[in-house]
Amino acid sequence: MTSIPLSHVLVLALALFTIGAVGVMTRRNLLVVLMSIELMLNGANVAFLGFARWHGDSLAHAAVFIVMAVAAAEVSVGLALAMALFRHGRTVDVDRSTRLKG
């Protein structure tokens, strides 16, 4: 049984990360920006697990576990901020939320 080339796993990781980065940079809806950040974290996780399998060592799985916990914390606080922002200005458009701009 031929196995998967490592480079293909890394291309998948790079694709997910790039799509997420493009989303963070171009989208203006705060919720979609948060979703794009999730995509970037998932790309990093795919790379972690690809290398873990390559080395035959499951140490990285624990790192992925911690990344997931961080992502969950980030989403809960980020969505709470989105709610607060919406209550404040009736918008979650990151380009129109310029109150803190100097």
Partner: peptide, 8 residues
């Protein structure tokens, strides 16, 4: 390309 090793 470096194949992924089957986990032992």
């Amino acid at each position: 390309a470096a194949d992924l090793a089957a986990p032992g």
